[in-house]
Nucleic acid binder design. Structure first.
Lengths: 189, 189, 189, 189
DNA sequence: AGCTAACCGAGACGGTACGTCAAGTCTTCGG
DNA sequence: CCGAAGACTTGACGTACCGTCTCGGTTAGCT
């Protein structure tokens, strides 16, 4: 039985929310740990009691803030399933969550361990689901069975991730269908 | 006619080379300014005389180190042109340059101005060339004329950028053809 | 009631002591801030948290290191009081403190504000005491009442300050009595 | 016979004058070498061709600027001779030259060699003259022959040097006589 | 008259130290 | 024992100033 004061769940939540808010707003400054603590009305130590680093907090804020956002259905209609799914992804990438992801990618560039964790806890589950759905389509004979599944998925998700990281254009809902069509039907005449 | 001691081009070059080497090696904590100065046999002040910040040096090292690396031809064969081109891109991304680009993307995540400069000086020229080549293909009737060119290009480059930034898989030369095929022919049976 | 971690008085003291030691030793190039931090076993930031500049630290080291060193008594014997006092001053000037004072004077030459602070916090209190003692002697009829007190005091202290700053000769304990005698009795036959 | 372009005496002079002007004005900034070069309309290298260091320039500016300023006569009247002399010294100390001296003293605090040179080339000749004059007075029976000449001189000059270095009061012409009187007659009733 | 050495202004360069900033740790008080 | 406050260590950043070096160009004496 734990002694002493019990953990303050509210503080825990406020930290993640403040992180989501500050990092997500994406305004120049890049939200320092002190800023997050201040915004959450919390001491820095409280943050470091529950997370090992600034990056870890951001990661958790990302994981919590995006959980139920991009369902990928399994109907007969491959195009529809992926289009709807991509629309969800685009919505998420255009939300504060997008900034959090960029921040994680930035952190990954400096630290291989962070990169690995990001892939395992964020990337892998989502990729597994997409892969499974594409495999279903292959099994159903809707997609050629000689394709490189990973590459195909990268072509599907590539455009939105590219726009998120480079920022040369903004992804929109309407583009989801086009992206899906491009990769399924090709662009050749 | 410029007066006074002329700028030391050799030092200038040594700085960029040292930066390229150090950042490119990607070992743990990314090369500090003092490290670069030391490796280039140069005073820190000399670096700051020509570049406003550490990031700016890295950017220039990137621009210099990759200039003529990924030619995009204009033969009749669209597939061949883009495949060869993508092979170049993949080679570059797998070289130290890849790490420089990741670093710039990371810096862009923290600072909108850096992001803008990266897009204008690195991204835009390359994208313009790709766009022109794809437009040629459209004009030649090899590609449908109702496509969203930007999105198509994002689908083409997306996979390699995605693997560079997320690092879930490594891009290989062989994949170039597959990527091109995927986007041109589609993956549908 | 102050919240948070309390200021580390020990570190504070160690900084001043290290400064006193390093500057006082007077070896060649005067103790850099990093040296002081190192010697005090303290981070540079901690120094700059409590003092605005290197000079300010030295000044405080001076103020702490010399506080009760040169008592000026109020007996009947004017000569004895000032002689004893001057002996104290000479002892202090010949100790590391002397070097600190030279350093402060040097800093004052570059920055009027430092000069002003030196006068207000170091000079003024000591001068006030000396002035009071001399005034007592005047009131007691031991000293002429038409003298310029400030000038008389400057003649009293001048020799030791002069030797401290110019360094043409070293002040010794024995000289205290002579200096006092010179100014009280004059040198005329 | 020297070959090549002859030394530019005008530049030489302009450097010393600019130094005198800038250091002498005593405004906060402490005149950097670049400032002096700029003000003299000269390249920094030209300065370093003729002087080994910033301090050396200042020293020369001091030596040139004050040469014929403080004659010490040898009449029968000891008081008058020293009073007139002190008036000269005070005038000099209150002129830009005073600042130059402070600067040299500051430099001496950091570097023993500078200190030594200052004493040998500036201090010693002047002190020798004063000492000789005082010795004359002793020989003439106007001053006691058991005094410590050096200390007596230090008491004579101490007040003006003290005010120069500490700056607690400004020396005035009128004080010259008082200072002389203090040390010759004493202040005792 | 041309050659060459030493000068000149301009300003970039190596080096040393300064003072600042942000991440993550440690300590104290109060609940 | 938890949480707030905030002082602390660490380590990198960018700036300032000194004294050196190099450039294009000038001004002599010597051949």
């Amino acid at each position: 039985m734990p002694r002493g004061r019990t953990r303050d769940e509210a503080a825990h939540r406020r930290i993640l929310e403040a992180t989501y808010e500050l990092i997500g707003s994406g305004d120049a400054s890049h939200a320092k740990v002190d800023d997050i603590a201040k915004a959450a009305g919390v001491a820095k130590q409280t943050i470091y009691r529950w997370w090992p680093s600034r990056t870890a907090v951001i990661f958790d804020a990302l994981l919590e803030g995006t959980v139920q956002a991009t369902p990928l259905g399994s109907s007969d209609d491959l195009r529809e399933d992926f289009t709807t799914h991509l629309q969800g992804v685009i919505r998420v990438f255009n939300s504060p969550t997008g900034q959090l992801i960029r921040e994680m990618l930035a952190a990954s560039a400096h630290d291989p361990q962070t990169a690995e964790e990001f892939r395992q806890r964020f990337w892998a589950p989502r990729r597994a689901r997409s892969k499974a759905r594409l495999q279903e389509a292959i099994d159903a004979g809707q997609v050629r069975d000689d394709i490189d599944i990973e590459l195909a998925l990268d072509a599907l998700y590539g455009p939105v991730w590219l726009r998120l990281t480079v920022g040369h254009k903004r992804s929109t809902q309407q583009q989801a269908a086009t992206i899906v069509s491009n990769i399924i039907d090709g662009i050749a005449r």
